[in-house]
């Protein structure tokens, strides 16, 4: 089955991904993503139901670490590199409301 991606889809996924697109960009991404989806659609020409999904090349399990404290980063250095900081905290614009 071929999936079609329309402009509303592009706008929706841009929103989920925290990107803002102009109308022209929506247009152009709709175009290119549709072409890519055609390539991806090749997967559906084969019956793959007999193949278990493989999400990772490794088959190992239980790679755990011991519960031991390791020195971390210097706060001053980290906050220095932050776009905005105040009182030893990272600072961000307000969370709720709109402009």
């Amino acid at each position: 089955m071929t999936y079609r991606i329309d402009q509303a889809d592009v706008a929706h996924i841009a929103k989920l991904a925290r990107l803002s697109l102009s109308d022209d960009e929506i247009d152009s991404y709709q175009n290119s993503l549709s072409r890519i989806l055609e390539v991806i659609d090749v997967m559906n020409s084969e019956d793959l139901s007999g193949f278990a999904p493989m999400d990772h090349p490794l088959e190992t399990v239980n790679l755990l670490r011991e519960d031991l404290v390791v020195p971390g980063l210097d706060r001053a250095e980290v906050l220095e590199a932050a776009p905005s900081a105040e009182d030893n905290y990272f600072r961000v614009p307000r969370i709720l409301g709109s402009s």
Binding site: L68, V70, L73, N88
Partner: peptide, 23 residues
């Protein structure tokens, strides 16, 4: 635990802000 879930930073309550941090 003594440390966080995925790193060796101390799992401590009530410390100065941003003192128990790593990459």
């Amino acid at each position: 635990t003594a440390t966080k879930l995925f790193c060796g930073c101390p799992n401590a309550f009530g410390e100065e802000p941003n003192t128990s941090i790593c990459p």
